[in-house]
Design a protein around this nucleic acid. Sequence first.
DNA 1: GCACAAGCGTTATATTAATAACATTTCTGG
DNA 2: CCAGAAATGTTATTAATATAACGCTTGTGC
Lengths: 284, 284
Amino acid sequence: MSNRILKLVRSEELRRSKSDRLIANYIERNMVELPYETARSIATHLRISPMTVGRYLRRLGFDGLDDLKNELRRGHSNPAWQVKGQVDRLQQDIRDGKLIAGLIQEQVDNLGQIYELTTSPEWQQAIDLLVSASEVYVAAYQNVRGIAQYFASQLSYTRPRVQFVDGLNGTYAEVLDGSVEGRVLFLHDVRRFAAKAQPLALEARRAGVKVILLTDEFCLWPKEASDVALIVPGSHGPLWDGAATMTAVMDLLLSNIIVLLGDQVNERVELLTRLQDTFGDFEA
Amino acid sequence: MSNRILKLVRSEELRRSKSDRLIANYIERNMVELPYETARSIATHLRISPMTVGRYLRRLGFDGLDDLKNELRRGHSNPAWQVKGQVDRLQQDIRDGKLIAGLIQEQVDNLGQIYELTTSPEWQQAIDLLVSASEVYVAAYQNVRGIAQYFASQLSYTRPRVQFVDGLNGTYAEVLDGSVEGRVLFLHDVRRFAAKAQPLALEARRAGVKVILLTDEFCLWPKEASDVALIVPGSHGPLWDGAATMTAVMDLLLSNIIVLLGDQVNERVELLTRLQDTFGDFEA
DNA sequence: GCACAAGCGTTATATTAATAACATTTCTGG
DNA sequence: CCAGAAATGTTATTAATATAACGCTTGTGC
């Protein structure tokens, strides 16, 4: 069982030194990619020497990384839990008018409409702003708040100075105090619009902050309150909230930014990943 | 994507000679173990020469087995942006406008796979648990945390006693204290798995809490740590790490629950809406 | 603050993998 | 059966990985 490896790696006795913890943590969190790694590649990630990795593995009781891989291989021998997809049956069932299939169809249609959005000038403007901004603030309320947080979290992998703002203190001073040029506010608001959203957007513009608004077709104030409005046509029936569509739009934005920034992103990701590896060992 | 490898290996043009077919078959049937193999090990298995394997791979368009492994790896845990050469190609494609359309197509394919998931027994079990539970706790970490919060927020529209847990105090007492029967923990964890997730799941089960685990196909411990495992395949598509797919799954879960509960949900939604109006965070 | 020990990095070396160049076998059409 | 071609195997070379041996750094007990 690969579980034995996890147990070993987690055992306190074998986490004595700093690099012990680094390596243990790295192994634990990158179990899936381990087969592709070498002692050297792990060492490089963690900015330590391959030798240290080898020594650690030996203390775990393995004769080198290959030996560990062998055990991994046996443990991984039968992944019975893979769900095999067959779109054909999906299409058949949609014709039969089954409920879930219908919902998925709706989702698929929505995703098609996203494509239109990505070809619009607003899309480009949004990308440009997100890339060139000195600071990016992300805001959203109520039920889509979590999704916007996800966006902020992912965006911060691509560029520095990204922050989610919740305005808990009621002032939004961090966004509105005008202390930094070139700020951008990314505001996500849908359906039952939050009362706070429009005022925030207006104030932001007044303070010289560019506003990108990600919303749906029912927003009544996209132009007044934003510099760039991304309006996602979605189905807002009683059953379907369309958050998946919004997430898809965000993923596309991120992909686009990644492509634009290219190697810069790679560097930043490696930096953040190393930080994760470094700080990860305190919580395990 | 690893899908591309399968397509290549199956294409008739590249199955001309006897060893072509041998190797193609071997790769196709041993996809999972491929990361552990070398050109030599494959050759030995098939009683042919390593050279032949190398040549075949080159004709497939790979620069040796390591190159193929790299692509496999990306199919596994793909931050598509980790590979520098690929970024350049992406930049080219996006100028041509091919990329976005292709990405969306891929995403659509993923949604097809979701459908497969909804027909599985695990899906029904998950729905049953979420409906019949006395209390539902939702947990997730790092970048998917926000998404899980969204799920918790939406789920609380369909049924009472839903809570997001962040374990900030380090005990998770609210979930684990055994004070209430029939609790359910909905745990969402993907990609770079959080160190805290598995221990939480194990503890929860020990405390008599049923665990629903929403994860991707690379989770190494779905069975030990959950009563019901919802494994979403291909969630590591070209659009970042596929949060959109996960959100879609959540939306589907919610839809399904709403359908099951019917009028009960309507009542609850009306109640919550009235509360919202009272406290005034929403517009119109 | 000193001496000793444990941990870590560096260099050199053995082992292994992949491939180019050449030799041999197998296949194909007549 | 016999060329010529295609496919495969063999050998030698190159690149890369892992580790042993040694030396430096950091930590620890007195």
